[in-house]
Design a protein around this nucleic acid. Structure first.
Lengths: 210, 210, 210, 210
DNA sequence: GATGAATGAGATTTCATTCAT
DNA sequence: TATGAATGAAATCTCATTCAT
């Protein structure tokens, strides 16, 4: 019994070794310019082994994005836990997203890359599928917050929780993306932090009942 | 002077020929999978000449995105013209963006690609720069609508027009992107059209004074 | 002794399991495109074990060809048994070869592959050697038929039996090969069945005394 | 006019340079073990250029086989020219094939490789197609000889010229193949030269009228 | 005997870009 | 201006084989 178990554990560790190396390379070079050669070299493993553990480069990238999404989910859960009112939870989740993007810009970037991929739902057994599932879970947490808000009267009752959650998720992602990628500050002489406040102000006002 | 003039005109025409061919190819294959060979062949021109008129492949893609942004700008202007109240103008612009994405999905895609590029502001003389300028102009139109709304009392006066405009632009782009790329309908069993309405409802409610 | 015996039997069974799996894979994909991984998976055995029972992939392929050659040998023997006159035996063997190629095209193909390998006689202990031996046995049967024909006056006495046998074997293989691989029918608008008859006519006429 | 013409000439020369290098490599290593890298290095050209002039490795191999088939065709034509009677022409063609295989064993080998390829007729514009055409031409010469023989009474009139030609071609190829690849001499203690004579004796006797 | 992770050496192919003419 | 051959640097992926356990 011990043998099979240990093997499994070791295999999982190898997978992590590879994933760590891939993160290093993908974060530094970006998904497109990163090469499997570089990952292999960084992991001090043979290139063939990479393809033993991961279908292809894309799958590896998705695995990293999946890691990021798991972290993001934890951020969201914490935000949910630490606030009472639904509206506060929604805003806290939004801020959590911002903080995540600031603290883990590389994860955010690779998640952006993932979002930019034309989106088949991911073949079963791929990390793309796992990413989609994890993303849905995140959106589910937002929807939960919206539902809470509707229940406690802090959010307009006529809103559909799921649709609202998707909207907020997409909007927030779009916003962070433009801030971190497009040098809005430089181009429009705008303070990013203040911009964010404006955005939250807008979102909050949109959600609250009159 | 006639000669020089004709030369200039011809040169501009060549550029357009190339751009038309590039659109065809880039639209069909996507920026990454399109090749300069295919563009040259489609344009019935030599590959070398492409590099005479455009710095590189990226520049060519930017030129196409620039075309798209110009069309989008016209959509925005029309939306602005056809409505009186600021808030209506803002909403109309948002809807115009949606319509643009539906009518010119290829332009929207290449603009998404542009947005996803890590954003140096564009070296002077490149189409990247032109894209940034054109994008700013679009945002300027949104800002104008916000300003109008503040002036006519249909939008909350404490909002900063530029920041609000940037926010709306980013949010709307993020939303359209997720709808068209990520099969939200499939994954969340949500009706895209209704989702859009929810989003506009949220945005509008966020902007309007109590 | 019982133990050692059982062990030997089990070992032989393992070998057969592997060979069966290899046949399935090699037949489906062809020797070159078949992989040891696929064989191992089909056999539900580890890849390493394959190399315990067979030197290498080539050896495995030879083992299959050897199986085919044994079947072919049986066809030849039956043809020999069922006819009296030498000339009839030769022709029957030829037809048996044809029938074999039709009934076991996969064996014929792998034997063709074997024929196409640059032919060292096979290191001792390899299946290549066994193939050569088996092939010689087949040729031996043809030679026997020729000898019978010379004895009973149905075949020209001045022919050397072994050389004639080799010639007939090579010619027939070449003929079947071209028919089954090269789409003669399509390219030359020829009926394969009739072509075969012509070939036998030629061969028979070549053997018979005036 | 001079420019385009010269370009064309130069291009053809390049193609020959590559073909020469490919021959060297393919002849030395065999088709399967030869690499495009080696060809490029031998030609002192970039690997990319190989793919500019030839579709892929297979096409390059086919181009070499095509060269061989052209030489073989010349051998056949000479044999046809130098003999009067049809039967003599057929035999002379057979001997020419033998001589070709002896003088150009590398060409013969690559042609054998070509014969062993599962035979789609060759996509238009590929050298595979050219090989098939050239092969048909060779068979056509054999058929002509058979026709001549029927006309001058040296070959049995009931034989179908084309079918007979195909049969002879296939048989002869099979025979040479086994002689040059399979070390018949060693395995069967047979003299190759004498074996050949036996084969021709058989074929000739099969063709001649009683 | 048996396992299966690990190796490592390519193989084929693609293209953006340049440059001699 | 215009051509298009030439470059060259990767990039992804495949497998036969080995070896520690």
């Amino acid at each position: 019994m011990g043998v099979a178990e240990r093997r499994l554990r070791e295999k999982e560790q190898r997978r992590m070794t590879i994933l760590d190396a891939a993160e290093k390379v993908f974060f530094e070079k970006g998904v497109d310019r990163a090469t499997m050669d570089a990952v292999a070299e960084t992991a001090e493993l043979s290139k063939g082994l990479l393809y033993f553990y991961f279908r292809n480069k894309e799958d590896l990238a998705h695995a990293i994005a999946h890691r990021g999404l798991r972290v993001l989910g934890q951020f969201f859960e914490k935000a949910l836990r630490e606030h009472e009112k639904g509206i506060d939870q929604v805003v806290a989740i939004g801020r959590a997203y911002m903080r995540f993007a600031r603290e883990y810009p590389d994860y955010f970037n690779i998640m952006s890359w993932f979002e930019a991929q034309p989106g088949d739902c991911g073949s079963p057994g791929t990390y793309a599928e796992a990413c989609n599932a994890q993303g849905s879970e995140c959106i589910g947490l937002v929807a939960q917050a919206v539902r809470n808000g509707i229940a406690d009267g802090t959010i307009r009752p006529e809103l559909d929780p799921l649709e609202t959650a998707i909207t907020l998720w997409a909007q927030t992602h779009g916003l962070i993306h433009i801030i971190s990628y497009k040098e809005v500050q430089v181009r429009h002489e705008v303070d990013a932090a203040h911009l964010v406040e404006t955005a939250f102000d807008l979102m909050k006002a949109g959600l609250e009942p009159r």
